[in-house]
């Protein structure tokens, strides 16, 4: 019972600001609404007993990516144009496509007979994730660190002011 209440509150905290993100005409307000949406996803992770992923989600998504988005909005003056039109000509076909896609996805997902899993999640997912990263998924670990290096250098080069 308590879990259902917590789930409904967190789902509302995730979805209602997400509507503001995609429909608001004021970009700074859209970026501000992104943050409670990400924190709602963090709550859903905690409810799913994935505490390490939840901590990383707050640290990286809400603490770094949202800050980066706010920085770029402030540097490109996107937040001042309230009279500027913010939706393009694809608004209604886009809405129809997204709604149709969501309906198809929900229909398929709800009707699939998911097998009930056996076993339990390890008590400390941090240690389990660390061990998995260094034994079974070491290739993904090394490749993602390479991608981080390449994107770091790439972002620096692209955004540099030409002297």
């Amino acid at each position: 019972m308590g879990e259902l209440v917590a789930f409904l509150v967190l789902a509302a905290l995730t979805l209602v600001p997400a509507v503001v993100v995609v429909t608001s005409r004021n970009l700074v307000r859209a970026a501000m609404a992104l943050i409670p949406s990400l924190l709602g996803v963090t709550g859903l992770f905690v409810l799913l007993q994935a505490e390490f992923v939840a901590g990383i989600q707050v640290l990286i998504y809400a603490g770094a990516i949202a800050v980066l988005i706010l920085f770029v909005i402030m540097l490109t003056e996107g937040g001042t144009g309230l009279a500027v039109r913010q939706v393009n000509t694809q608004r209604w076909p886009g809405l129809a496509a997204a709604a149709g896609f969501v309906a198809a996805l929900v229909a398929v997902l709800v009707r699939t007979p998911w097998p009930a899993g056996s076993g339990t999640l390890p008590a400390g997912t941090t240690a389990a994730v660390g061990e998995a990263f260094l034994t079974e998924f070491v290739l993904a670990f090394e490749v993602s660190s390479l991608v981080l290096l390449v994107s770091l250098v790439g972002a620096l080069v692209i955004a540099r002011r030409e002297p």
């Binding site: 700074v28 390490f52 901590g55 707050v58 603490g63 800050v67 706010l70 937040g79 941090t126």
Partner: peptide, 25 residues
């Protein structure tokens, strides 16, 4: 006493930046 205590601490202090940016803007 969270079992990810220090990760939670660093995550919360990284949320302060959002308040700073919004206050200045």
């Amino acid at each position: 006493d969270l079992n990810i205590g220090l990760l939670f601490f660093v995550a919360m202090t990284s949320l302060i930046v959002i308040g700073v940016l919004l206050g200045g803007w």
